[in-house]
Amino acid sequence: MLKIPREQFDGLRAHGEAEYPQECCGVLIGKLSDGSRVVKEFIRCRNSQTLMADRRYSIPAEELIAAQRRAREQDMDIVGFYHSHPDHPPQWSSHDLEEAHWFACSYVITGIEKGRAGDTKSYVLCGNDEETKRFDNEEIEVLTEVGA
């Protein structure tokens, strides 16, 4: 399960709307707790794709390094990533799976329909290696309590 505070959940969806018609992308940092990934913060990243950015995304490595450092400084970890699918459902694609290498992390996708955020889905990268990897559906729990 992915547990994410309302403010973070709304924020990553708004990022998708802001970047429309291009794909947005970012990093989720937090902690693992009882098998769930608990998000504390989302970090907006630049989509470094210069061609077909309406259907491709890539997070610059230097921004990943910075996110990793930020997580480490707060005694947290990178627990997942998010991106958007402009005018396309939030179903993982063959390209998403091919480019996914962070096992046991969440991959959150928001469908952006004509500039407005639609459904948001999450998938966990499972398997043991590049040959056996797969995405499993993951439930999202949006936390609304103060201090969640």
Partner: peptide, 13 residues
């Protein structure tokens, strides 16, 4: 040293 797998993807639109 930091080992950092890449992050990329995108829709099949």
């Amino acid at each position: 040293l930091t080992i950092m797998p890449s992050i990329a993807g995108g829709s099949n639109r």
